[in-house]
Design a binder for these strands. Structure first.
Lengths: 116, 116
DNA sequence: ATCATTTTTAGACAAGCTTCTAATCAGGGG
DNA sequence: CCCCTGATTAGAAGCTTGTCTAAAAATGAT
């Protein structure tokens, strides 16, 4: 939370990141930096109602249920998604602020980032 | 390159990513998803003149020169930075379009992404 | 040519990640 | 109460990654 001097370039190309900030952001990025998890994020986020049951997700992959469960846990631990059990099924939702935070890192200062 | 229907949410939360797109984006993200490489990116991008010599970068870390060189290679292979040798020194620059591409993934459709 | 400096390559080792199978937890019916 | 389905946890195998030391390549100076 430092300079907001001019509108020039993405924060990441703007001033040196502190080691602490870099470590914290790397955790978020590492969670996102996997083909399966990117697809899970996009499937959850674009699902009608904004949430998806694990059973909706598993079939799209050639992976076992425990593997999908593992990837969901990685995303949840990083704070990119959250889960809720309703009866037999567990539903996952995107955490919008986490996504926004990633976007802000690479995007040239737009006022739209915190919107809606 | 599909829908541009409404301004709602980040592309990643908008529609399911194809396996191919996910794989390609994961390569970019994986390169960025490391504390050392995030700091390297930010140090290069924020350096006066838009480029930094390897010698400017090494001292900020408790790492050996070969390790820094390795991380720079990962970033360059992914297309996030490019290098040029001038005399004794090698200079690194950010590739803005690659950064923009990452930002666009997580940002809710702003017209500023392709600017400047 | 020899040497010093800057950067990269090569190879090795420890740590971490992705995936699996097997077993366990949680809820809902017969 | 027992079983069935949905989901997670536990533990293991194989591959990838981050870091190091040692050596090489590239350039400029003596």
């Amino acid at each position: 939370m430092t300079a907001a001097t001019g509108r020039c370039c993405a924060p990441i190309t703007r001033e040196p990141l502190s080691p602490d900030d870099a470590a914290e952001l790397a955790v978020l990025l590492k969670a996102a930096a996997d083909p399966v998890r990117l697809r899970l994020l996009s499937m959850i986020g674009s699902h009608p109602g904004g949430e998806a049951c694990v059973c909706d997700l598993t079939d799209a992959f050639d992976l076992t249920a425990p593997t999908i469960s593992h990837h969901l846990k990685v995303l949840r631990t990083a704070g990119l998604i959250e889960s809720e059990r309703r009866g037999t099924w567990v539903y996952y939702r995107i955490v919008p602020t986490a996504i926004t935070r990633l976007g802000a890192l690479f995007t040239p200062l737009t006022p739209a980032t915190a919107a809606s």
